[in-house]
Simulated scan of single mutants.
Amino acid sequence: MTLTPRTERTRAALIDRAERMIAERGTGVSLREISAAAGQRNHSAAQYHFGSREGLIEAVVATRSAEIDRRRGALLADLDGAVGAAGTVGATVGATVEELVAALVDPWVELLGAEEPSYSLRFLAQVLDDPDLERALADSDDPPAGLRTINRGLARRLQHLGSGDLTRRLTWTHAVALRVLAHEERLGTRPGPGLAAVRDDLVGMLAALLRAPAPATGRVPETPA
């Protein structure tokens, strides 16, 4: 369905306002409140355009995920080029755990360094803390392409883990990264040594989490080449 420019502007305003209000107040904020805050005289505008609270939240997630995934795709392409120049084909084959974790984390870190205040990370953290919404969103679509590529690359580097342990570690990695950076977003971290230190520390910590010995065998993984 082709949307008119006016409809696109209305939907964008509702998405922006929903993201900020949910980030600040939680997922219980009503559609009428969001419509009013977005400047809509019809306070049922969010209901009209998205059908339900879940529909609006899914639209926010889809919009922001697409933006983040485009950035992850660019980072992976750069990594492909750097790794290829070193004689190995493909980032997911030759990249280290740290490089792949950085591709996961860096687009979120860049939000914290932007001129305009970000609400995306707090919004996502609020959604993940709502069990009903988390389940609904988890069942809705496959992970974005960039995230799938990162997960595949990490799986190749973490063959000491069984499939269940790997799935759990990847889930934890995403959750920990998001919540740490949502906390930094709340604090209002800005560009500079402080933000760079947060990024580097987070990447190192998550890489260590992923490389830790498998719980069943205690076997220490080989150091990546």
Rank of each mutant, 00 (worst) to 15 (best):
A74N: 01
L75P: 00
D78K: 07
D78F: 01
L79S: 11
V83G: 04
A85V: 03
G87W: 01
G87A: 00
T92E: 14
A95E: 00
T96K: 03
V97G: 00
E99Q: 14
E99G: 06
L100Q: 10
V101K: 02
V101P: 00
A102Y: 04
L104G: 03
L104T: 02
V105W: 02
V105Y: 01
D106K: 11
D106S: 14
P107K: 05
P107F: 13
W108P: 01
E110S: 10
L111P: 07
L112H: 11
G113T: 12
A114F: 12
A114V: 07
E115I: 08
Y119N: 06
Y119L: 06
S120I: 14
F123D: 08
L124A: 15
A125H: 09
V127H: 06
L128W: 08
L133Y: 08
E134K: 14
R135V: 13
A136K: 01
L137D: 00
L137Y: 03
A138K: 05
A138I: 01
D139H: 05
D141Q: 13
D142K: 12
L147N: 14
R148H: 06
T149D: 15
T149P: 02
N151L: 13
N151Q: 15
G153H: 14
G153W: 13
G153E: 14
L154G: 07
A155P: 00
R156N: 08
R157K: 14
Q159F: 02
Q159I: 06
H160R: 05
L161Q: 07
L166D: 04
L166C: 04
T167Q: 12
T167N: 03
T167W: 09
R168A: 13
L170K: 10
L170M: 13
L170E: 10
T171S: 14
T173D: 05
H174Q: 10
A175G: 05
V176G: 00
A177P: 06
L178I: 05
R179Y: 04
V180T: 09
H183P: 00
H183Y: 00
E184K: 09
E185V: 05
R186I: 03
G188K: 07
G188P: 04
R190F: 03
P193R: 14
P193H: 05
G194A: 15
L195F: 08
A197L: 10
V198G: 08
V198N: 06
D200R: 13
D201S: 08
L202R: 08
L202S: 11
V203N: 01
V203E: 05
G204P: 07
M205W: 08
A208D: 09
L209G: 06
